[in-house]
Amino acid sequence: MRRQLLAIVAFLAAMALVPHLVGSEFWRNWVMMALFYALLGQAWNILGGYGGQFSFGHAAFFGTGAYCSAILHVHYGVNPWIALPAAGMAAGLVGAFIGFLSFRYGLRGSYFALVTLAFAEVLRILANTVPITGKGVGLLIPLDPGAANMQFADRTGYFYLILAFVGLALLLTLWLEHSRFGARLVAVRENEDAARALGVDVFRTKLAAITLSGALAGLGGSYYAQLFLYLDPGIAYGPAISVEALLVPIVGGMGTLFGPLLGSFALHGVSELAKLAFGEAAGLDLALYGVLLVLMVMFMPNGLFGMGRTTLARLLGGGRDA
């Protein structure tokens, strides 16, 4: 635990230097967006990686967080800093609601995945229909730079904000790995019936995980809203976010502390590499990205972190595959 904590602190410290050491604003922005997707991936990881419950619908939480903070700010004049925890809570509540229904009825595996996808779609359609979200026109947050407004004239503010969120997510995950709750969650992932036999309240454990996961994704949504100042139903609840949220941790290593971070940086790196190769031929770079994705899965079935651990174990003379 201490070593992991040390690693987190070292990582955060190194990242904190990025705005000062990296001169290129493009690359600073790149790191910032990688951190943003790492946050969403870390949120997914709690439920999917540690809890074994695959969600295809994390946009439901992301979008709720985004809309909640934007609506509070635009329609009710609430300061974004105050709206932020509310957004996390609202997204957590949506998580609890979806979790309550689906776990109550014992949905697992692909059934659970599909039900989360369907909920995200329902929310997208609702956002397209109810007036408070601005319907299809979307919701524009007035441009009013100032740290008090959670709008930073300079990207550095946004950088430290997302770094703080990622730090929070990492510490939360670290706690999870070493807490009784985390142990129960992993037990549920490995074998629900066995966990139940050992006295684990499976339903409540999963419910807590999806609530926590949803709340974290909601923070990401709030961040996105303050960064780009515009939301529409497709941005908030569309499938793109759900896909990113699951890609990042699976590629990086599910159920590991640093998996989502690794996955996010790796995927963004791969995407940049593909652009470098074919950047100006529309579509070809994304096709290459797809090929690289398949190759990554083929050669690193346990994710980047899993592979790193295996190699490390070998080097240290353990000789056994993890």
Partner: peptide, 9 residues
């Protein structure tokens, strides 16, 4: 992920 990758390609 593989089917997702294939569809992107």
């Amino acid at each position: 992920l593989v089917t997702l990758g294939v569809s992107i390609v």
